[in-house]
Design a protein around this nucleic acid. Structure first.
Length: 326
DNA sequence: AAACTAGTCAACCGCTAGTCA
DNA sequence: GTGACTAGCGGTTGACTAGTT
């Protein structure tokens, strides 16, 4: 496919910093006609700019909902958590931080956070400790390693650990329920592929018998939520997707964060919103059998309290889930 | 005061994916 | 099925500023 240049008439088009007059024209035009049609916008708006440049200027600077100024501690923490989850997917990270643009976050990451992580001995790419042989990072889940960013992040680390347990619990519920009824290979393919982070979680849980302090969970302001853990867990590949609402809807997040209150008696479907469910479904799109079962399970789960036996009490590694059910 | 260096961030570039005729 | 168009993404660049020599 032959691709036409972004801007047909690059000659004569202005580049570089925008002037207040240009901004005014662009804002005025977008306010009157709305966003979109970027290719033809410059001509209509009387701007000697590439449409792409106009879109970028609007998206990164002129949009009215953009929050400017320093990133606060919570935002920074969110960025780190989300980066551990998404990697350099700046747009995905930006969706978790309302009012912040992907460009702004990318710049902030590269100029501030990245350096700080390195200084703390954390690899900003893998989120693992740069020091080998310490025994600390190797035994922690990926996202727990992320938390080793500042002194006060130790608490956050614990909270993430606890939220991981929520994932494990949900998985246990699914495993217990589905293990008796559906094709084992389908189940293991979905929840056991690659032995991702949960491998470590289950192992960790087995040896330490961590109990969840719901009150301490409640004190968390972290934007990292069990929802993302859940999705990641089900995906099992460490590249889980998450919906914007996952990180922006605090009420949902709070509920998720506190879901340990009633331990396993709380229905997963009560805190899994539609959007999350869609994402979950996307991650399992190839496994229609599983999705049918899961849907049924979620519906039943509204009122049904399942007596269950935690999988992690029976195995050291999540990869062995097939053996457990065999 | 001038030259140099490092940090910051807006803007650009190249590419991809989605949509539509 | 193909190609053109469009929007959006992530990496990179370069102008500007602040600090240092």
């Amino acid at each position: 496919m032959v691709r036409t240049p972004c801007c047909k008439a690059e000659l004569g088009l202005k580049k570089g910093a925008w002037t207040p007059e240009e901004d005014k024209k662009l804002v005025s035009y977008v306010n009157r006609h709305g966003e979109g049609g970027w290719r033809t916008l410059p001509e209509k708006a009387g701007l000697k700019r590439c449409g792409k440049s106009c879109r970028l200027r609007w998206a990164n600077y002129l949009r009215p909902d953009i929050k400017r100024g320093e990133f606060n501690e919570d935002e920074e923490r969110s960025i780190i958590s989300l980066h551990a989850l998404h990697g350099n997917k700046w747009a995905a990270i930006a969706r978790g931080l309302p009012g912040r643009t992907d460009n702004e976050i990318k710049n902030y990451w590269n100029t501030h956070i990245k350096k700080r992580l390195i200084k703390k001995g954390v690899d900003p790419v893998t989120h693992k400790s740069l020091m080998s042989g310490t025994g600390i990072s190797e035994n922690l889940p990926e996202r727990n390693k992320t938390s080793i960013t500042s002194d006060d992040d130790i608490d956050h680390n614990e909270k993430v650990k606890k939220s991981e347990l929520s994932s494990a619990r949900f998985l246990n519920r699914v495993a217990n329920r589905f293990g008796k009824r559906i094709n084992q290979s389908v189940l293991s393919e979905i929840i056991g592929s690659g032995g991702g982070p949960l491998t470590t979680i289950t192992s960790h849980t087995t040896t330490t018998s961590v109990t969840v302090d719901s009150e301490s969970d409640k004190s968390s302001n972290s934007s990292f939520t069990p929802t993302s853990n859940l999705l990641m867990t089900v995906n099992g590949k460490g590249n889980a997707t998450s919906s914007p609402s996952t990180f922006s809807d605090s009420s949902v997040n709070d509920h998720l964060m506190y879901c340990d209150n009633n331990e396993d008696n709380i229905g997963f479907s009560t805190f899994l919103n539609d959007e999350d469910f869609m994402m979950l479904e996307e991650s399992c799109v190839e496994n229609t059998e599983f999705m049918k079962e899961l849907t049924r399970f979620l519906q039943e789960d509204e009122t049904d309290n399942v007596e269950m036996m935690p999988v992690y009490e029976h195995q050291d590694s999540f990869e062995e889930i097939d053996n457990y059910f065999a």
